[in-house]
Design a protein around this nucleic acid. Structure first.
Length: 575
RNA sequence: GAACUUGUAGCUCAGCUGGUAGAGCAUUACACUUUUAAUGUAGGGGUCCUGGGUUCGAAUCCCAGCAGGUUCACCA
């Protein structure tokens, strides 16, 4: 591992601190009695309460001016300035704590605990005057330096933002340290989930857990991840939905069950798709999809109010209003509205032709349901910004939904489209076991035609239905998508702490021992690494004459006081 | 999976029609007791993503690869 100059200096600082008797990673706790947010909010009102504070955080900037210094301390709640004066922390003759420890061996990124009092500087900034400080954790890697300042109009401007998406996602910890708004988005994500949980708990529904490893995947149209259980010697799939298990629990007699669940779909990745994503699914007995529409409206409106104190949320260039009630539009009406074509009476052939006419690619594996879905997806969804219920879907694309009470060929199903994306899916659940078996069999047919997302038949689920499931309304909400909207994030990767990414390439590096084993003196090893030789293979492939020259040249460049090897020695290593 | 695009110092970025690299911040040293993108002076730091090719000469042009981003396709 090649270290940069700054990393080497920090390692040296760590050593120096130890020599000075300062433990860079102390074991004991540091007592904290206040948060930065608390100080910033309440100091002006209750100044006497902040005469003896103890607080910990990360040093985010330093301004050293001789015998006094300013630094910024960041804790979980915010960032504020601290003031350190040499003669305060070093009252005696020994000024090392300030001159050496603070000025030389502390860095941006170090975590410290301080004790002192709050005051306001001449420039008017609330600041902690430090009486004592203690190193809590030495940071060995330099943080990206992001600076903020006000421009002439008083707007906050950011300089040198840490903005490369790859680095932000791969090293989310750095992103969270230097980009406070990122922490805020994740805070809102949790608030969103908590709001829903509280809402559903208050209604008396039971939060449950169901298997992630499933012998038969079901409940959605998607490709699964496949894995293997050794003891049972059987294939298991990571769930693509929890629908079928939750309905079994409704059969078992619970009135309402819900689960926040990680689901897994082995499909493409994009800014709207991560291989693992979070859904909430809710099933309530003795209800239908009309009832569920009211619940969704109320719950999502509550989420918006909880997060923003208003039902209006700015998302990109759109202002989305979640205030109830939301418009309700049947799927056929929606298609008619946005394409001008009435497809409600069409058969598969006519649909295929219609789809082609409006520029949609079709193939033979697509059944009637899929064709309608395509038309809707490409012609309607992009135009729907405000939350809108799309209701009454064709039977073919909803194998788990109940037949419509009055409209033949349709099912009692709705989705909410918002900001051009589906945010939830719901139906009156199919509870006729004979009809359900028939629907599964139709799915098997689609599978035979080559539809890789078609459902498989779940005998145990059918057995459960045969015991009798009450009429039930079911709901699934994509938590990631809803969070994207509620926090105005353009990409799903911005609402997942650790989005899935290709693994970082790891260079196969030879260790010091590997080189020593070849007879290379220890002090020469850094020189070899500096030249760019990182593995034994690289070394063996090198031309001995060139390598000899390079080593001698690099030794000079690095100003190392070591003896050059002889050409014979170099040849010996490569032999 | 496809098209386009990006990869230069710890971070953010310059680098013209090819002549082996620059800035700001960070860092190092010195100065400085209320600053705030602190300041001043001096310094250090680079397999210019990787591998080939063209060329006297490649960060720059060409090809391939790796990784990222955007858009599209599939999907929630």
């Amino acid at each position: 591992m090649q270290l940069s100059e700054q990393e080497l200096i920090r390692r040296q600082s760590r050593e120096e601190l130890i020599k000075l008797g300062i433990e860079p990673y102390p074991a004991e706790l540091f007592h904290v009695n206040v948060s930065i947010k608390d100080i910033l909010q309440n100091y002006e009102k209750r100044k006497t309460d902040y005469k003896n504070i103890s607080i910990a955080g990360r040093i985010m900037s330093r301004r050293i001016m001789g015998n006094a210094s300013f630094a910024e301390l960041q804790d979980a709640s915010g960032r504020m300035q601290i003031y350190i004066r040499r003669d305060d922390i070093c009252p005696g003759e020994d000024k090392n704590l300030y001159n050496t420890v603070f000025k030389k061996h502390l860095d941006i990124g170090d975590i410290i605990g301080i004790k002192g009092y709050v005051f306001t500087t001449e420039v008017g900034e609330i600041t902690i005057h430090v009486r004592e400080f203690k190193l809590l954790s030495k940071s060995l890697k330099p943080l990206p330096i992001v600076k903020h300042a006000e421009d002439e109009s008083g707007k906050m401007v950011t300089f040198d933002a840490f903005s490369d998406p790859e680095q932000r996602y791969r090293q989310r910890y750095v992103d969270l340290i230097v980009n406070p708004e990122v922490r805020d988005a994740f805070l809102k994500r949790t608030q969103l989930i908590n709001t829903m949980r509280t809402y559903l708990n208050n209604k008396g529904y039971l939060e449950v857990e169901t298997p992630i490893l499933q012998p038969i995947y079901g409940g959605a149209l998607a490709k699964p991840f496949k894995t293997h259980h050794n003891t049972l010697d059987m294939t298991l799939y990571l769930r693509i939905a929890n629908e079928l298990y939750l309905k079994r629990l409704i059969v078992g007699g619970y009135d309402g069950v819900y689960e926040f669940s990680k689901d897994f779909r082995n499909e493409g990745m994009s800014r709207f798709h991560n291989p693992e994503f979070t859904q909430i699914e809710l099933y309530v007995a003795y209800k239908d999809y009309y009832w569920m529409m009211d619940l969704v409206e109320e719950m999502v409106e509550k989420v918006a109010l909880q997060l923003h104190d208003t039902t209006e949320v700015k998302v990109g260039n759109n202002l989305i209003n979640f205030q109830r009630p939301w418009p309700r539009l049947t799927m056929f009406d929606a298609i008619k509205k946005y394409t001008g074509v009435d497809i409600s009476q069409m058969d598969e052939t006519q649909l295929r032709k219609t789809a082609k006419d409006i520029g949609i690619d079709t193939d033979d594996t697509m059944g009637k349901g899929k064709l309608i879905d395509e038309i809707f997806g490409s012609k309607c969804e992009p135009n729907i910004i405000q939350p809108t219920f799309i209701i009454d879907y064709p039977l073919e694309m909803s194998p788990l939904a109940k037949k419509h009470r009055s409209k033949p060929g349709l099912v009692e199903r709705f989705e909410v489209i918002c900001n051009s994306k589906e945010i939830c899916n719901s139906f009156s659940e199919l509870n006729d076991p004979i009809d359900q078996r028939k629907r599964f069999e139709e799915q098997l047919e689609l599978g035979k035609r080559g539809d890789t997302e078609a459902m498989v038949l779940d005998e145990d689920f059918l057995r459960a239905l045969e015991y009798g499931m009450p009429p039930t309304a079911g709901l699934g909400i994509g938590i990631d998508r809803l969070t994207m909207i509620m926090t105005n994030q353009p990409s799903i990767q911005d609402v997942l702490f650790f989005p899935q990414m290709r693994p970082e390439q790891k260079i196969a590096e030879a260790s010091e021992e590997d080189y020593v084993a070849l007879g290379i003196p220890k002090e020469i090893i850094p020189v070899i690494q500096k030249i760019g030789i990182n593995s034994v293979e690289d070394l063996k492939a090198a031309n001995p004459n060139k390598l000899f020259n390079d080593i001698c040249g690099m030794r000079k460049k690095m100003k190392l006081e070591i003896k050059n090897p002889t050409i014979e020695e170099v040849k010996g290593w490569l032999a």
